[in-house]
């Protein structure tokens, strides 16, 4: 009963199954199961959600409803390097959207996606608390501030 999605091994599905067995009968267990599943797989693709549905008896549509309700769950894989563009008020006013547009163009992808080579994923977030540096992006734990769009290619080249 493996999850057949190429990049996840049977080891992972065994781990998830153990979580499901342990949690199954507890009230409100679905969120904890999904949380663990995301820890194991990094994200929650359809195969993983079906695996949870099959082993809990919870309808797939309901699981999808929960996954899309909470921002903590992701339907798409994260890249090796996670880019977060701050869209808090200060950054927004100082032109964060231009930075975001340039990132999308350079990486040829949309917010929430991951590049085909798995190198970068792109997300937008609320205020990261570095308003003095606006506009700000984070790549993993590195912070880049007072940006203009033309700096984007140079920053990406570092990774």
């Amino acid at each position: 009963m493996g999850v057949d999605c190429g990049n996840c091994s049977d080891e992972k599905s065994r781990k998830l199954l153990a979580v499901i067995e342990a949690e199954k009968d507890n009230p409100g267990s679905l969120i904890r199961i999904l949380h663990e599943a995301q820890e194991i797989y990094g994200y929650l693709p359809i195969e993983v959600q079906k695996f949870v549905a099959d082993n809990t008896g919870i309808p797939l549509a309901e699981i999808y409803g929960v996954v899309t309700f909470y921002a903590q769950f992701s339907l798409k894989p994260k890249g090796q390097n996670k880019i977060n563009v701050c869209l808090g008020t200060a950054c927004y006013v100082k032109g964060a959207e231009g930075i975001l547009d340039r990132l999308k163009k350079e990486l040829n992808m949309d917010v929430g996606d991951c590049t085909e080579d798995g190198k970068f994923s792109l997300d937008a977030c609320r205020c990261v608390g570095a308003c003095g540096l606006a506009p700000v992006i984070m790549i993993n734990d590195d912070c880049y501030g007072r940006l203009v769009p033309d700096q984007v290619p140079g920053i990406l080249a570092k990774y």
């Binding site: 309808p59 797939l60 549509a61 699981i63 999808y64 409803g65 899309t68």
Partner: peptide, 19 residues
């Protein structure tokens, strides 16, 4: 049968199927 559900939240809330 359970094929329709409430998806997402807030302004984007909608009725739809899994995925």
């Amino acid at each position: 049968v359970s094929v329709i559900e409430t998806i997402e939240r807030g302004f984007r809330t909608r009725i739809g199927c899994a995925f």
